[in-house]
């Protein structure tokens, strides 16, 4: 099993903003009550990692950072066919911004060991910054491909297509490198029955599961706590304000027959101005 690529995929657990559970009436997230999920962008990264392994051989290691429940997404990754997972979990990481997060993950990757390709989701749905991937690449001194929507390896070289404004570009690089995967990449395949069954079996034997999923602390990975969490973050959220409700002048049309409703709207505003000329 010496051949193939040593692949790392970075994953994050985020609040499920799509479900109403855990949303306060004012629209803020109650993180304690919110449903949790694997960051949707990371599913594309996971697909890229597993596909690369399938095509060219190797192993996939999933790495995450977060509170203990984040182990759920590593189990999910395992079900999909990832070989092992590491969760960096430490109270001192609370309130880390992207720079502090990238530092902590950089130390974790160094702890995990050698790699050829690191896949990340383009961004997370709770932070929306798309910064941690490139900042990780900077710390690791790697070339990077962001906004990647197609990825293959030919003669030991990575060929990647990345989105740019109004088009795309194709780039070539030799591993090691870091790639962030856009949501126009292939969607994650369904987990196999076998994968799900295997993880179910593993969960019954904690000692055995511990061989596949390891939770580590800042001390384990040798990260400087001063560079993590609030202390290690050069940005802070100084103030939040509710976005004022706009307009409030919406004319609501309801409780009538469908054709009546539509007619009301069409006559109530100048929609017809924009209609294409009649075809006849």
């Amino acid at each position: 099993m010496a051949s193939g690529y040593k692949i790392i995929v970075m994953v994050k657990q985020v609040p499920d903003t799509g479900s109403k559970a855990g949303l306060n009436p004012d629209g803020t997230i109650d993180r304690a009550r919110a449903k949790r999920m694997l960051n949707p962008f990371d599913k594309f990264a996971l697909q890229a990692a597993l596909h690369t392994k399938k095509m060219y051989g190797g192993s996939v290691t999933a790495i995450s950072m977060g509170p203990p429940p984040a182990v759920e997404i590593l189990l999910e990754a395992l079900e999909h066919g990832v070989d092992r997972g590491f969760l960096l979990s430490d109270r001192r990481l609370a309130a880390s911004d992207t720079l502090a997060t990238a530092y902590a993950l950089y130390k974790t990757i160094q702890y995990v060991g050698d790699f050829d390709i690191i896949f990340c989701g383009l961004q997370t749905t709770d932070g929306d910054t798309a910064q941690v991937g490139p900042q990780l690449a900077e710390r690791l001194n790697l070339p990077q491909v962001t906004y990647c929507e197609d990825f293959s390896v030919q003669n030991g070289e990575v060929h990647a297509r990345r989105i740019i404004e109004g088009g795309h570009q194709t780039v070539i690089a030799k591993p090691p490198l870091l790639v962030t995967i856009a949501n126009s990449y292939h969607p994650l395949e369904y987990k196999s029955f076998r994968g799900a069954w295997r993880v179910q079996q593993l969960q019954r034997k904690q000692e055995e599961l511990a061989q596949y999923i390891k939770t580590v602390t800042l001390d384990d990975v040798g990260a400087d706590p001063e560079r993590c969490g609030l202390k290690g973050s050069p940005t802070i959220v100084a103030k939040t304000e509710k976005v004022g409700e706009l307009g409030g002048s919406c004319s609501i049309h309801e409780g009538k027959a469908v054709d009546e409703l539509v007619k009301e709207v069409i006559t109530g505003c100048n929609v017809k101005e924009f209609l294409a000329a009649g075809k006849k």
Binding site: P15, T17, D26, G27, T28, I29, T125, D126, G127, D128, P234, T235, I236, V237, A238, K239, T240, E241, K242, V243
Partner: peptide, 11 residues
């Protein structure tokens, strides 16, 4: 993120 809020971020 995911909230009806505007955040002022400083560094």
């Amino acid at each position: 993120f995911g909230e009806s809020l505007k955040a002022r971020i400083l560094g």
